[in-house]
Design a protein around this nucleic acid. Structure first.
Lengths: 352, 352
DNA sequence: CTGAAAGCGCTTACAG
DNA sequence: CTGAAAGCGCTTACAG
């Protein structure tokens, strides 16, 4: 008894479900039922439990819950070589949903080029018993990762996968339409000769964005000239180099649409170097709305991806799936809305 | 028996310590000993266990380990409103160490202005039973967070705290000396009139960096003029505005040292806007070596903080502390080396 | 609507 | 040097 009392006084004392049950004058099973929102509990009982839990500041032990039950309350986020800003948004979106449901997010940066990637993934999901996994590009298109998760039966959601869109639940946005609309904006500003810088050919978004650009041009009976559509790699350096080539020509474009912000920053750098005034002499548009977009001068017009929302939606899918039967519902796809943000790097052309 | 066999064949079958013990012909206690590197095990026994574990691809269940033992193998990272690039580095550094020791990292973005911050922190550490917590600015200086962690007895390490440096173990770098050396570089390039843009006054680094700047100037008998030392807020916008003011004056500085990269980018933006050629007519230096530093033109000279290493060191401290007695060793401080990176935004002054 | 028992997969004392 | 027992704090069947 004295030991018991001392334990309660200890700063490190942890209050368990037994303590709550004792204080409420009920069994631990009933406490468990209330805390897990199970049916068949009197309102009066429910309140007694909640009151006791509150008074004791009870926090359930996740390890015990996980060991006894079928859920770990842990979601894993696998990513590789990400844009920090992108990953940051994904994390905030995912955590926001996790918090609401008592889940936590563990992060697992991986190297998709590593030979032991499979082993790493396997190790993580079986030690942690992850209730679900969120995959961002390029991990979401890695065959070994997908197969490992499938073999283990761990539910996962892919964010903006390039390949095999119907293989598993995914969340994404309509890259083609976004590029289409941005291009339309440029055309409506009065631009006719618009340069386009493609992204890394391994990324599916690269092709979709190019498609959108071409479709918008075609809609206005415009055909981009071959030398105005250049191959970049999503890096600012590649954007810089493409711009150097395009801007050197006397009949240079009046606008350049770089298919991501990093490349657009490279274009701005090139224009600044060449004393080409943006947007007066050259309009520049990007894609992604990275923080750097408002760090350059002039501020970059771009497409905002709803990354936070995509991650939150991905998390939702995982959590509801874990809460219900470890479902075999068919694959889901959720397309989120993008936003075209016109800032100071775009304007009507000089002669427009 | 048949059920047993079927279970083993099941894709979802999990191999437990009992399976390993059975295959090795030993007790689970011995398996546990080997896996935890406890002493008093024959080399022969050890090998039998490891061989069985390998054959079965055994992965210990973290929940069970945590519930039975005193460690959760979970480290928590608390952060707020961070620079994504900074936080990304912290995460990669922390995870690299976690991997080595079978630990995992859960991320807990918090809002230091939220009224229920304390409750959030308390909830997280007691449900997750975190073995340790890493705190980045500004969370590492939040009194409520520190007190909550101390009251709960959760070990924590602060990265680059501003306040009360000796209150708990910390990892950081010498901001004063870094600013000192960068300024020295500028002076040695031939600059005499150097502008300085201060950071947010609430950050301790702000004052240290200013101190370093002034000490370097003084060492060369240079006294910065009051109008050349301006108050920024660490945002690129504030850097832009300070630069606009400084560069407008006929006797403008030949170099500007912005005390972080974001502000330096604002300075570059202002220079570009004013057709001031960098570095010929103006040298610009930053601090942090953010990814954006090589995204602008010209590439930014800056100070690289060893963020990855700081986070790894923080993780080390936590893990070794968790492995040994939940120690009451005194506070530790570890200062890591920075690196001065001179790129294309700095050069000798025109008249130099 | 509520509860007593068993068990999740490990580690912690304790024997031998 | 090795092992049998108890128990960590919960949830899952099962009774009543």
């Amino acid at each position: 008894l004295r030991a018991e009392i001392e334990r309660k006084l200890d700063v490190l004392a942890t209050v368990t479900i037994t303590d709550v049950a004792a204080r409420a004058g009920l069994s631990i099973k009933t406490v468990s039922r209330v805390l897990n929102r199970e049916p068949n509990v009197t309102e009066k009982t429910r309140e007694k439990v909640l009151e006791a839990a509150r008074a004791l500041d009870y926090q359930p032990n996740l390890s015990a819950r996980s060991l006894a039950g079928s859920r770990s309350f842990l979601i894993g986020l696998f990513f590789d070589n990400p844009s920090p800003a992108y990953i940051n948004d994904v994390q905030l979106g995912a955590v926001s949903r996790c918090r609401e449901s008592g889940y936590h997010l563990t992060i697992e940066p991986v190297d998709t080029t590593a030979p032991d990637l499979e082993r790493t993934v396997r190790g993580v999901i079986s030690t942690l018993r992850l209730d679900g996994v969120i995959l961002t590009p390029p991990v979401c298109d890695d065959e070994r990762v997908l197969r490992t998760l499938e073999a283990h039966g761990t539910p996962f959601v892919r964010i903006a996968p390039d390949l095999q869109p119907d293989r598993a639940p995914r969340v994404g946005m309509d890259d083609e339409r976004a590029a289409f609309e941005m291009t339309l904006n440029l055309i409506e500003l009065g631009h006719r000769r618009i340069g386009f810088i493609k992204g890394h050919p391994d990324h599916g978004a690269t092709h979709l964005r190019l498609d959108g650009f071409i479709r918008a041009m075609a809609r206005h009976d415009l055909t981009p000239r071959p030398e105005d559509v250049m191959q970049g790699w999503f890096s600012s350096q590649s954007g810089f180099e493409c711009a150097e080539a395009m801007l050197e020509r006397p009949d240079r474009p009046t606008a350049i649409f770089a298919s991501n912000d990093d490349m657009a920053l490279g274009v701005i750098a090139s224009a600044n170097r060449r004393r080409i005034v943006v947007p007066d002499q050259l309009s520049i548009a990007g894609f992604d709305n990275t923080p750097a977009a408002v760090t350059v001068w002039p501020h970059l017009s771009t497409v905002a991806q709803p990354i936070f929302q995509m991650a939150a939606a991905a998390c939702d899918l995982l959590i509801s799936r874990a809460a219900n039967s470890p479902g075999q519902e068919g694959p889901t796809a959720r397309l989120m809305d993008f936003e075209i943000i016109m800032r100071d790097s775009t304007a009507a052309p000089d002669d427009g």
